[in-house]
C-alpha cells in the first residue's frame, strides 16, 4: 500500500470512530479514545528510537511533560502580555496570542526535539546504556526544574481553562471533539512517519545500528548522525503528544505530567505489540490502552499499572518479539 493511500485509510478509520462517538453523544468515548490515541503517538515515537535503533529511552514522561509545559508556558505568557509590554507591542502580540493548539503542538515538538537532540549529542557517542541512564535521570531533573518554576505553577500546578466550544467557519465544534481530532491527526502522522522510515534508507540504517553498531560503523554507516535523527524525531513526537494535554486535563500538575504511567506504557506498548514494525506499537497501544481504560474504571489505577509492569516483564522474557512475533511464528509454522 502506498503511503498516501495508507494515511487516507488511517484517517478514514479514525473518522468512523469519531462519527460513531458523535452520533451517540458520548463525551466519555472521546476522552477515552483521546488517551488511547495519545499512547499510540507515544509508543510509536518510542519505537522509532527503541525498536528501530535499539536504544532505550526511559524518559518518555519527561519529553511528554516538556511538550505539555511548553504549552502551559505559552498560555501563561498570553495572560501576562498586558502587564509585561507597552500598549503598542501588547496589541500586536494580541493578534498572535492566544496561540491555537496546532501551533502549540509545533512549539512542543520543537522544545522536546531540541532536548532530545542535546541528550543524544552528549550520550550517544558512548556505550548504549549511558543514554538509557541519562534519560532516566532527565525525568527527575526536569521535574525538579518545573517544580521550582513558579511561572508555570510550580508544585501547585496550573489551571488551563478549556473553552466549551470552538467556532470554526461559523460552525460550533465541541472542544473535546476538536482535541480528539487533533490527536487523531497526530497519531496518523506518527504512524505514517514510522512506516515511511521503516521502508526507507534511513530505516535500513537504523536496523544496522540495532543489529551490530560496530559493523555498521565499519561499513560506513554514519551511525551518530542516524542516532541523532532518531532521538530528535522520537523526542519531537513525544512533545507533540504532550502539547494539547493541558487543555485535555484542565489542571496540570508536575506529578501528573511526569506520571510513571507514561514512562512505563510507552515502553510496554511497543514491547508487548512487537518492536520491529509500526504495527507493534499500534496494536500494543490499542490493547493495553483500552484494557487500562477499562481497568481504571473497574479496579484501581495502581493495580492496573502493576498489571502493565508484570506484562512487560513477562513479555520480554517469554515473547521477545511481542504479539506480532507470535503471530508471525505461527504463520511460518503453518506454512512449513
Amino acid at each position: 500500500m502506498g503511503t498516501v493511500k495508507f494515511s487516507f485509510t488511517a484517517v478514514a478509520i479514525g473518522a468512523l470512530v469519531m462519527a460513531f462517538a458523535h452520533w451517540f453523544h458520548v463525551d466519555y468515548l472521546f476522552f477515552a479514545c483521546y488517551t488511547i490515541l495519545q499512547f499510540i503517538v507515544l509508543a510509536t515515537a518510542w519505537n522509532i528510537l527503541g525498536g528501530y535503533c535499539g536504544y532505550v529511552n526511559f524518559g518518555s514522561a519527561a519529553f511528554f511533560a516538556l511538550g505539555a509545559y511548553s504549552s502551559v508556558a505559552l498560555i501563561k505568557f498570553d495572560g501576562e502580555i498586558d502587564a509585561w509590554f507597552s500598549e503598542g507591542v501588547a496589541n500586536a502580540l494580541h493578534y498572535i496570542f492566544p496561540l491555537p493548539i496546532p501551533l502549540l503542538i509545533i512549539f512542543g515538538a520543537l522544545v522536546s526535539g531540541i532536548v532530545g537532540f542535546g541528550m543524544g549529542y552528549l550520550t550517544l557517542r558512548l556505550r548504549g546504556s549511558f543514554f538509557a541512564i541519562a534519560t532516566l535521570a532527565l525525568a527527575v531533573v526536569l521535574q525538579t526544574l518545573i517544580v521550582n518554576w513558579d511561572f508555570v505553577g510550580g508544585s501547585r500546578g496550573a489551571y488551563v481553562i478549556r473553552p466549551e466550544n470552538l467556532e470554526f467557519a461559523g460552525i460550533a465544534i465541541n472542544y473535546i471533539e476538536y482535541l480528539f481530532a487533533l490527536m487523531l491527526l497526530l497519531a496518523v502522522i506518527a504512524l505514517t512517519t514510522a512506516r515511511v522510515i521503516e521502508r526507507s534508507q534511513l530505516g535500513f540504517g537504523f536496523a544496522t545500528i540495532r543489529d551490530d553498531e560496530l559493523a555498521a560503523e565499519a561499513c560506513g554507516v554514519p551511525t551518530l548522525r542516524l542516532k541523532l535523527i532518531a532521538t530528535t524525531l522520537s523526542g519531537a513526537f513525544m512533545g507533540m503528544a504532550g502539547a494539547p494535554f493541558p487543555y485535555y486535563i484542565g489542571y496540570l500538575q508536575p506529578s501528573s505530567a511526569f506520571g510513571l504511567e507514561y514512562a512505563v506504557n510507552s515502553i510496554a506498548m511497543p514491547m508487548i505489540g512487537g518492536t520491529t514494525s509500526w504495527v507493534g506499537p499500534l496494536v500494543g497501544a490499542i490493547l493495553l490502552g483500552s484494557a487500562q481504560q477499562y481497568a481504571t474504571v473497574t479496579i484501581s489505577s495502581a493495580v492496573n499499572l502493576l498489571i502493565v509492569g508484570l506484562m512487560l516483564v513477562a513479555f520480554v522474557i517469554i515473547a521477545p518479539n511481542g504479539l506480532i512475533g507470535l503471530v508471525q511464528e505461527r504463520l511460518r509454522r503453518r506454512q512449513s
Binding site: R210, T275, G309, V316
Partner: peptide, 20 residues
C-alpha cells in the same frame, strides 16, 4: 539481547516493586 530487552526487564522489575 541484554541491551534492549534486558533494560526493559529491569525497568519492569523497578516498576513492579514500586507499585507493589
Amino acid at each position: 539481547q541484554e541491551s534492549l530487552r534486558g533494560l526493559a526487564f529491569f525497568f519492569g522489575l523497578l516498576f513492579v516493586t514500586e507499585v507493589t
